Simulated assay, not measured.
Amino acid sequence: MTTPAPLKTAKPAVPSAQLRVGVLLVNLGTPDTADAPGVRVYLKEFLSDARVIEDQGLIWKAVLNGIILRSRPRTKALDYQKIWNNERNESPLKTITRSQAEKLAAVLSDRDHVVVDWAMRYGNPSIKAGIDALIAKGCERILAVPLYPQYSASTSATVCDEVFRVLARLRNQPTLRVTPPYYEDEAYIEALAVSIETHLATLSFKPELIVASFHGMPKSYVEKGDPYQSHCVATTEALRRRLGMDDANLLLTFQSRFGNDEWLQPYTDKTMERLAREGVRRIAVVTPGFSADCLETLEEIAQENAEIFKHNGGEQFSAIPCLNDSDPGMDVIRTLVLRELQGWI
């Protein structure tokens, strides 16, 4: 009778808490340079995404390559130059997102198995570069954090698309989690309210009302099922409750229209014009859909819409900074990340 071979002793499992975990903060993106060539590269990548412009047919490609990419980069480069971080030679969005990652890493520094990095959906550093860096540091699990409070296919979903594309090319894939939208999360609403109250206390005037301006979206996208508009409404309603305001003194609008299609209304710029002509003289604008200040907040709101308001009779205008890497802003990111890392750390 053959004596059975002794069983091999299994290696003790590595405690899950000791596995290296990567956290990748992701924001929308930015040109690498504030000139026409840099903006052209960025716009081509951005506007070639079928999540952003859903009809990528021959007509759109002809318009994009024959008209938009020939003329728009020059004008947008001038806008970027108005808000560019010349000291670092980069956009404020890149500066702030890097700082958010560094501050989150400091908060998690007592967990030496957690690695934090950051990326841009369009431009650099790319999502691929971020994932490659985390894997190179031994991360077997990755939490992707799209820094968009309100979900939309053209922001949150396209981050996931790119993450999945990167992982699809890997034989040895890390385990993946993605943070959910946080449009009415208690920590987020509280941080927004605190930031508004803190900013208003610094002003030399009292705004007659506040406008909450969100990035726009073609109306047809919502009609096809995108929940973005409902998330913006939920954020605004939660903020009204927290601040003790109503829809007469905290208005919801949408900015950044592009093309000839009907977009979500009311439009921010038209609202600025209307309010000024109706006799409103003092106003403040908050941009709850942006986790970091960028071209759309620093130039479009703080400069362009301020000019529209004053040109039509308004007198005092203040743009409330985004949460950025402020203490309240970092509380939101920390809360979101630690919640989604449960069971991993």
Rank of each mutant, 00 (worst) to 15 (best):
R72M: 03
A62D: 06
G314D: 07
R277W: 06
P174V: 09
L134I: 10
A212P: 01
W118S: 06
E197F: 07
G314T: 09
D269I: 12
L58S: 11
I196M: 14
M245L: 14
C139A: 11
L176Q: 08
R257A: 09
K61A: 06
V14F: 04
D117Y: 07
R88M: 13
V178D: 06
R282P: 02
G216E: 09
G138C: 10
M120K: 01
P227V: 09
D327E: 15
Y228T: 07
G314W: 03
S318R: 02
T253R: 02
A50K: 14
F309D: 01
L243N: 03
T202L: 13
T75R: 13
L147N: 01
A34C: 05
P180Q: 13
T198D: 15
D117N: 15
G279F: 06
T335W: 01
A119C: 03
Y151L: 07
L336H: 00
R141I: 07
T3S: 13
P149C: 01
S256G: 04
A201Y: 12
G259Q: 14
D161Q: 05
Y221V: 10
N172C: 11
L176R: 04
A157D: 06
T235I: 05
A105W: 05
R72D: 03
A292W: 03
A36Q: 06
V107T: 15
T158H: 01
P73C: 06
P12I: 12
L93V: 03
N86P: 00
L176F: 05
T75P: 00
Q18W: 11
T236I: 08
V63N: 00
P180G: 10
V114E: 08
L336S: 00
I283T: 06
A101S: 12
L264A: 04
L323T: 03
E162Q: 11
L47P: 00
D261Y: 10
A144W: 00
I83K: 04
P125W: 08
V26K: 04
